[in-house]
Design a binder for these strands. Structure first.
Lengths: 206, 206
DNA sequence: GCTTATGTATCACAGCTGTGACATAAACAA
DNA sequence: TTGTTTATGTCACAGCTGTGATACATAAGC
């Protein structure tokens, strides 16, 4: 008995299936038929919800970016104002915002893998390139926000060049993601957290 | 008139063609026919030099890693002993070793793109995974060598944890590569060099 | 009732993929 | 010379790809 399906949630189910394939086999194996099978749908059904494979890809990438952004905003909200807390607590909470970008659990690990696969695909796929570029600028402005806040409260050591530090921290985050995803036995989740917190501590006045 | 071809150089020509395709279109478009066309060869000819597509892929990845390694060793040799030089000169030369890993010109840019594409493919391709893992450990030991040398000459600031710094520097390098390759207009080659040198300077005693 | 929209399913088609089998021809070895 | 290796080229096959066209049933609106 069709028709009582919610198209929006169906599309998200399909996206979840696509993510599973990307994590398991890589983006190049995420064909329409493979995604349909993984979502336990007929290919005809799948194509009823997505005009074309390009639209599916774009929607999937956008969904992934939305999930990350939503999680970041929720975390920012949870952290809120930390001025009243002790310094060590402030540090931990501030770090926890950027830790949302690292593959520290299965949810984030999935998102990071899908993220990297898509931005790599975006390098040679014009239909995805603006999404990739926008997300890169988003990360950069998030890091800028974090660093300027720290600077505004005198939590950065003197003589620091903000833009240069943004570049360094963004590269560090991306590099940690890549290494943790590709070589989890070389760079564990704990190592990631340690590296990030160490770097942030290093930026503080001392 | 066949037969006076050098099989080894032929294979390298094919690898060059494959690299061009990977840079231009991505690894997923590097099919046997596409590579053969790019190398101006018949597919039958190509298959005379490579048993299968998997062998071509493995050989291409190995070739890329060899090229990077060769370039690194040559650079290490060129730099040699820098103790006699002024400090600023020492810094520049030491940085130049790690800069061989960054996409600072067309040669290195090509290698970095191919490198990232292959290690990503290695994530879900068992035939490439050991190569990727070996290269990751190689980078790590290279960075370890650089940092322990600096430490041995008292060029590292006190209280530094070597293993943690290796992780941080490796991640920084990888992150710079990824950003420079994906968003060259956001992170220029000069920015890359500046970020690396700034980081190295930051590790020095102060 | 009838009509329209929605969802599911099947088929066919052209295009690409890796690969096996084979033909041809030139260079070398006996 | 004859035979063998090396090199190039062609064909066909099964498998997968995205996509267009189509059928058919169910639900909703009239």
């Amino acid at each position: 008995m069709p028709k009582q399906v919610n198209p929006a949630t169906r599309r998200l189910d399909v996206v979840d299936a696509l993510f599973r394939i990307v994590v398991r086999d890589g983006l190049q194996h995420a064909s329409l038929r493979a995604v349909a099978d993984e979502a336990q749908l007929n290919t005809g059904s799948l194509r009823h919800y997505f005009e074309s494979q390009q639209e599916l890809m774009r929607f999937a990438m956008q969904s992934m970016l939305d999930r990350v952004a939503t999680r970041m905003l929720r975390r920012l909200d949870e952290v809120g104002d930390v001025d009243a807390l002790p310094l060590s607590e402030q540090r931990k909470l501030r770090a926890s915002v950027l830790e949302e970008l690292l593959p520290l659990d299965d949810v984030r690990r999935t998102e990071v893998i899908v993220f990297v696969e898509f931005i790599m695909a975006a390098r040679t796929n014009p239909l995805l390139s603006e999404l990739a570029r926008t997300s890169a600028l988003g990360t950069r402005s998030l890091v800028r926000r974090a660093l300027t806040r720290m600077a505004g409260r005198g939590n950065l050591r003197t003589g620091i060049e903000i833009e240069a530090e943004i570049t360094r921290l963004v590269a560090l985050l991306d590099g940690l993601c890549l290494n943790a995803v590709l070589y989890p036995d070389v760079l564990s989740a704990q190592d990631c957290v340690a590296a990030l917190r160490f770097h942030l501590a290093d930026l503080e006045a001392h």
